[in-house]
């Protein structure tokens, strides 16, 4: 089992989860974070600290978000690890809760 970051993280990227994760299993893209499903130890600590309520226990994923498990797995392989909290994206507050954010997901791998 693992925990899964879902669509409401897109364009927000608050990174509070990164600060509490005991095993540093978050990986960072341009406007989204993902959890490495093999490295996550199911401690549950990230769920409550996410200001966007974007993180779910795999077993609690709503039906329409189930595909995020495979997406987390895929992107954790190509994105760099993030280990320190940083500022959220500039318009995070504006994007929090906006529907249909998946179309804005930038899957590109950051340079360097």
């Amino acid at each position: 089992m693992t925990y899964v970051v879902t669509d409401n993280c897109i364009q927000c990227k608050y990174t509070d989860c990164v600060e509490v994760c005991p095993v540093e299993c978050f990986y960072e893209g341009p406007n989204f974070l993902v959890i490495h499903p093999g490295e996550c130890i199911d401690c549950d600590d990230c769920v409550d600290v996410c200001p966007a309520n974007a993180i779910f226990n795999e077993d609690d994923l709503p039906e329409d978000k189930k595909h995020f498990l495979a997406l987390n797995e895929e992107l954790a392989q190509i994105w760099p690890q993030i280990t320190d909290q940083k500022d959220p994206l500039p318009d995070a507050a504006k994007w929090d809760g906006v529907a249909g954010k998946l179309e804005h997901l930038d899957k590109s791998v950051p340079e360097g």
């Binding site: 093999g38 490295e39 077993d59």
Partner: peptide
């Protein structure tokens, strides 16, 4: 290091 413990949590699965 990198570890894959292949953990199963909960009885649902």
């Amino acid at each position: 290091g990198k570890y894959d413990r292949e953990i199963i949590t909960g009885l649902k699965k």
